[in-house]
C-alpha cells in the first residue's frame, strides 16, 4: 500500500510517499521562512504559501519516490486540527487529485500523524534496510508537544486513543516561542532556547511549576509570567544572563511535561512511551522523560517530529487498515483525538 500524503495544517507544506505506513519513499517539506520576520505565524500568509508551493512539492515528492500516480494506492491529507485556511488548501488539493486519479481519499487527524511518526523509517538509496526498526509496542502513552498542541494520550490500540490531558492555556511550543522572543532569540523558539540553554545553569533561577493535582492537564502561562517577571528584574540590574534564564525555563517546562508523562505511564499498563511534535526534538525533554519512566521511550528523528507529510501517510495507512474506525473527511480546525 503506497500513499501520497499531504500536510498543510500550519506553516510547513509537506508532501510524502509512504509505503505500508512505515517506509518513507519521499518526504519533502517547505518551511515558510516568511514568518521569521513577524515572530509568529500569520494564517493568511501561511495559506497563500501553501497554495503557491503545493503542486510543485507534489510533483517533486513523486519524482523523489520514483513513482507515477499509477503506482499510488491512496491520497491522504490532514483535515484537522490546524489553521482552517491552511487545512483547506491541502485537503481540497488532495481530494481533487484523488478524484481525478481514481484513488481513495483519506482524511487524517494531524495528531494521529504525530503519533504514527513513530512507525516511520527512511529508505536510504532506494532499498529498505534488511532489518527495519520494530514497530512500537502498544498500548502506549503518547506525549504530543508542539507550537500548537500539548496533549497526553493513552493509545489503547491502533486508532484507539483516550485523551488523558492537554494544556489549559498555551501549548508547550508557544511557551518556548514567547520566552525566546522575551530573550531576543528569534522564532521559532524551541531550537533557539535549547541552543541558548546549553551554556546556562538550569538551577540559576527557580521557577514555579503549576501543579494541577491529580490531573494530566498542563498549564504554562504561570511559568511564562514568572520568566517575564524575572527577566524584567534582571534587566533593571544589567545585562540579562540569557543562557541561565533559557536553561532554567527549559528545566521547568521539561519537568512539568516529564512528570505527567511518567505518572501516566506508571498508572496505565502500557508497553512504551511515544513522543511527537516539534518540541519532542528537544533533547533535554527526552532525557528528563527517559530518566523518570521504566518503559522504552520512542522518539522520531527531529525532521519527523516537526510537521511533515510522511507522518500523515503513516497515519493514513492505519486508517485504511482499521476501516471500522471513524475517518474524518470534513476539515475542522478544532479536531480532537478520539
Amino acid at each position: 500500500m503506497r500513499i501520497l500524503a499531504i500536510e498543510t495544517s500550519c506553516d510547513e507544506t509537506g508532501v510524502a510517499v509512504v509505503e505500508d505506513g512505515r517506509r518513507i519513499r519521499a518526504n519533502v517539506v517547505a518551511s515558510q521562512l516568511v514568518h521569521q520576520d513577524t515572530g509568529g505565524i500569520v494564517p493568511e500568509v501561511a495559506a497563500r504559501e501553501h497554495l503557491r508551493a503545493i503542486d510543485a512539492l507534489t510533483e517533486q515528492a513523486l519524482r523523489d519516490a520514483g513513482r507515477g500516480l499509477k503506482e499510488i494506492d491512496a491520497v491522504a491529507a490532514t483535515v484537522g486540527p490546524g489553521l482552517i485556511g491552511c487545512l483547506l488548501v491541502g485537503a481540497n488539493y488532495a481530494r481533487g487529485l484523488a478524484l481525478a486519479a481514481g484513488l481513495p481519499f483519506v482524511g487524517v487527524n494531524h495528531l494521529e500523524g504525530h503519533v504514527y511518526a513513530n512507525w516511520l523509517y527512511e529508505v536510504a538509496g532506494g532499498e529498505p534496510p534488511a532489518d527495519p526498526p520494530p514497530e512500537p509496542q502498544i498500548p502506549a502513552v503518547v506525549l504530543i508537544v508542539s507550537g500548537a498542541h500539548s496533549d497526553l494520550v493513552l493509545m489503547e490500540g491502533h486508532r484507539r486513543f483516550r485523551p488523558l490531558g492537554r494544556t489549559i492555556d498555551d501549548a508547550a511550543g508557544e511557551a518556548f516561542d514567547k520566552v525566546a522572543r522575551l530573550l531576543g532569540l528569534g522564532f521559532p523558539g524551541g531550537p533557539l532556547v535549547e541552543r541558548a540553554a546549553k551554556d546556562g545553569d538550569p538551577n540559576a533561577f527557580p521557577l514555579p511549576r503549576a501543579v494541577l493535582a491529580d490531573r494530566y492537564d498542563f498549564s504554562f502561562s504561570g511559568l511564562k509570567t514568572a520568566v517575564l517577571r524575572r527577566v524584567r528584574e534582571l534587566e533593571a540590574k544589567g545585562p540579562v544572563p540569557v543562557a541561565d534564564v533559557a536553561a532554567s525555563f527549559q528545566k521547568a517546562i521539561t519537568e512539568i511535561l516529564a512528570e505527567k508523562t511518567a505518572r501516566a505511564a506508571a498508572e496505565h499498563a502500557v508497553e512504551t512511551v511515544l513522543l511527537g511534535g516539534g518540541v519532542a526534538a528537544n533533547l533535554a525533554l527526552r532525557a528528563e522523560i527517559a530518566k523518570r519512566i521504566g518503559h522504552p521511550l520512542r522518539v522520531p528523528p527531529p525532521r519527523l517530529c516537526t510537521d511533515n507529510g510522511a507522518m500523515i501517510g503513516a497515519a493514513a495507512f492505519f486508517v485504511l487498515r482499521h476501516r471500522g474506525t471513524e475517518m474524518p473527511v470534513a476539515v475542522r480546525s478544532d479536531m480532537k483525538l478520539a
Partner: peptide
C-alpha cells in the same frame, strides 16, 4: 474571499495534477 478562492483553486490544481486536465 481569499480562503474561499483558495478552495476551488487548490481543488482545480489537484484535479489537473491527478488527471492531466
Amino acid at each position: 474571499s481569499f480562503t474561499g478562492l483558495r478552495v476551488a483553486i487548490a481543488a482545480g490544481q489537484g484535479i489537473a495534477r491527478g488527471s492531466g486536465a
